[in-house]
Design a protein around this nucleic acid. Structure first.
Lengths: 219, 219
DNA sequence: CTATGTGAATTTATTCACAGCA
DNA sequence: TGCTGTGAATAAATTCACATAG
């Protein structure tokens, strides 16, 4: 393996490989070829092999990949082989759904703290986690929390992000529908459901779009 | 403007431009330069200009872009200038959060139907929408619904997708944590929260990762 | 004979640099 | 002068093709 800057796109694909491999492993499968894995994901075999090769090649020529071993390797690459303690900020509709999301544990994420600004919510327990006052947000680092999930209204998102950075997190998953600015050392991934929905119609055939148009024609 | 195949990446960025422009417009701003817009988004001016140029260039040299006009243009490109009627399938934690998500209306999406398999939920009203039996899912087309949101458990996702395709939708936003297969003419965008969270640690400095590791060292 | 791993070729996307308009 | 729009240059990602290992 020569020197390669790993494409960001490869990193983006690794979790989906992981998801598929975990599924196959649970089905009792022990080995898989890049071709079979590609079929399973609607992807191409050479893409998968290339992606793995950036990190060193984990397969056996003529045989394929050992699923369990591959899972371990990907976990290691993605730094998922240590448990990550996570704080949730904002226990509204979306925040509550996040708390109930079943898959986090499987990938090594443990939500151990939740914060809200609403006095009616503070002190209540959701999914065995006591909701704390958002003003108690400092010193997450002392509690070993390095990742936070922001699920507060748009107007509070940037302030929350600032507080989280001060509190020492180095990764943020942002569900608030806005761009947030943080120091370079902190990684933010924003999920804005409306943004994803908004690019769906572009790919849909025009004929399929229901004709209930607003009268907003462009000259 | 010559012939260009528009990069998919440009299409992915358009909704975020739209989000920023809507915000600026609400603040009462009427014009903006690519430089200022870029600052607002932590992006580069030339990227923004290039993105717009794929669709024809909407600005005035020496002046900048008329925000309202630009919003209309982007809406048109993304086919958001007609209302899209949307069905939600699966009214669990995440589905309920989606129903309550405030921004859909602003982008022209109207969730007018919700389906679930749980008899206890069927018939109940959530956010003014009566939950229907999932078996009633056929003929969404007749109700002018061209987009569906899947928020059912993993095991039911592929079956649901198949039913939706049969029912005539041509766009699917999939929240179930799995890859789903549909005919080429149907566009699927999958949001798997765990997948996004799973690539966060990769970008975090190793020193920041709490050392509560599982004893799963690789040889 | 099968399936990986990887340089090289190709395609796609980003960045630059500047011509031309207001 | 200030800012857009866009060819050309550069960089990044994907795909190919095949040498190599089991």
């Amino acid at each position: 393996m020569r020197y390669h800057k790993t494409p960001d796109e490869s990193v983006r694909r690794l979790p989906t490989y992981l998801r598929a491999l975990r599924f196959l492993s649970q089905q009792g499968q022990e080995r898989i070829s890049s071709r079979k894995l590609a079929e399973h994901l609607s992807a191409n075999p050479w893409q998968i092999r290339k992606d793995f090769s950036y990190f060193g090649g984990f397969g056996t020529p003529g045989v394929g990949y050992d699923i369990k071993k591959l899972i371990k390797q990907i976990n290691k690459i993605l730094k998922l082989n240590a448990v990550h303690k996570v704080a949730l900020v904002g226990v509204g509709n979306l925040g509550s759904a996040v708390l109930a999301y079943p898959d986090f544990k499987a990938y090594g994420f443990d939500i151990i703290a939740a914060f809200d600004i609403d006095p009616k919510k503070i002190g209540r327990k959701v999914k065995n986690i006591k909701i704390e006052d958002i003003s108690k947000l400092r010193a997450l680092k002392k509690r070993d929390i390095d990742i936070a999930i922001i699920a507060v209204p748009r107007g509070a998102a940037q302030k929350t992000a600032g507080a989280l950075v001060k509190a020492g997190v180095s990764g943020i998953l942002n569900f608030s529908p806005c761009h947030i600015v943080v120091p370079r050392k902190v990684k933010v991934i924003t999920i804005d459901i409306a943004m994803d929905l908004a690019r769906l119609p572009y790919y849909m055939p025009a004929s399929s779009i229901a004709k209930s148009e607003k009268p907003k024609a462009i000259a």
